[in-house]
Amino acid sequence: MENTNHHNQHDEVHISSYRDHWRTLLTLLLLTLVTIVISVFGANLKALSVATALLIATVKVVVVAYYFMHLKYDKKLYTWLVLLVAILFAAFTILTATEYFNR
């Protein structure tokens, strides 16, 4: 039987450049700025403000996971697993929220 496992070699490793990392950071800082500005000055958004804050936070999380955590360049398996966990957690919150909304 042939040894089909690649234990030691990282086949075609993608090395992110320093410049990419800077770009990612800038994106994240920009998003942070936006979310703070909306929160501090956008008080009239009311209920929308939490939704916006969470939406921006989620975009930030995706950026971190995709670039810093290397999901973009890793095997697709990791992305699928992350999605699975996200769906699962979303289902927990939605089911629980449904319960409390209908009390």
Binding site: I36, S39, V50, A53, L54, K60, V64, F68, M69
Partner: peptide, 26 residues
Amino acid sequence: AENAGLYWHLVDLIWIYLFPLFYLIH
């Protein structure tokens, strides 16, 4: 190093949600 990095990014991820939920909800 890679795994330490993953762990550190996770700590960052959680803070990304904690920050708006506690500080920015007014």
